[in-house]
Design a protein around this nucleic acid. Structure first.
Lengths: 162, 162
DNA sequence: ACTCATACGACAAAATCTTGCATTTATCGG
DNA sequence: CCGATAAATGCAAGATTTTGTCGTATGAGT
């Protein structure tokens, strides 16, 4: 599965139906998908490959329960930076993205500049991370922490038209 | 793939290595995984199934690029509620979780009570969603919006020990 | 009307996944 | 220290899925 550069393709309702299935369970046999969307299995397979090559399907992954691997704490962090020059912002992006504990990182507008989703085993680990990532960064003006008590809904499912 | 109720199992370094592979690409053949962790393919397969039954592996999904399916805008929302009684909080959880545009929902401590990750095709759609979800809810005191300009890092990969 | 491009289904081949079974390894009580 | 039981492994056969090839149908453009 080589993540080729995407070149934007058009999707019909067959593709969307296939995506909707794969978004929920990508172990579904192509034969079964074919039955539900009224196509042959090879046709389904061709469409899947096309969407993978175009980058519509970015990756196929197993989703792991953090709690069961000792990474029980999910934390949101809003980060505000001092200077928003392109270089400094890019540097921050690269630094945040390179940290394994940072599960997600978004560059946003509004009262904050970055929003991070962090996964750590203990609050002590989080504290150590803040020292390294925020207090150790001259360009971080302020950050706000939100500890998750309940992961009500977690996923990367995209609402699809149709 | 039946998502059975989990009953917490112990994981050894073999399991963690397998998880680390599947987290990144669950289409990796078990034979290949076996080679990298020094186990036979059936042994790998049995471990995977055990972890699926125990809920360590929650699901297997394809990750779709929102931009390529016309859902280009990612938005963070911090929601603050008026009353935090158990019933009202549960009601809010259920309502947020039921909305397809709400990709993720966390109940958090701190200056906000909920954090949402929302995916919409247009700002108009977001505005309509806020009317329905926040202005139409008596228990919502205030919400703050952060529009994502760059999805720097997106995923549900859990940092694994070892 | 013709041609080319695209997508389809059917079939066959290759690869992968699954299962049964004998053996090895680990644990625990004697 | 030794033997019995339980758990996990590897190997090999069988079932399933995925992949590739071929011929055909549908549409767009000439």
């Amino acid at each position: 599965m080589v993540p080729k550069p995407s070149s934007s393709i058009t999707l019909d309702s067959f593709d969307l139906a296939i995506l909707n299935t794969l978004q929920r369970d990508n172990t579904t046999p192509q034969r079964v998908i074919g039955e539900t969307v009224s196509l042959s299995a090879p046709a389904v397979q061709r469409r899947i490959r096309r969407m993978e090559e175009a980058g519509v399907i970015q990756t196929n992954v197993a989703i792991v329960d953090p709690a069961q691997v000792g990474q029980a704490i999910t934390i949101f962090v809003e980060v505000e930076v001092i200077s928003e020059t392109a270089e400094l912002v890019d540097a921050a992006k690269r630094e945040f993205a390179s940290v394994p504990e940072v599960q997600q990182c978004y560059y946003v507008t509004g009262e904050a500049d970055f929003v991070l989703v962090v996964i750590v085993p203990t609050m002590a680990a989080y504290e150590a991370l803040t020292r390294r990532l925020f207090f150790g960064n001259n360009n971080v003006k302020r950050f706000r922490t939100f500890v998750a008590m309940d992961r009500v809904k977690v996923g990367l499912t995209v609402p699809l038209p149709e």
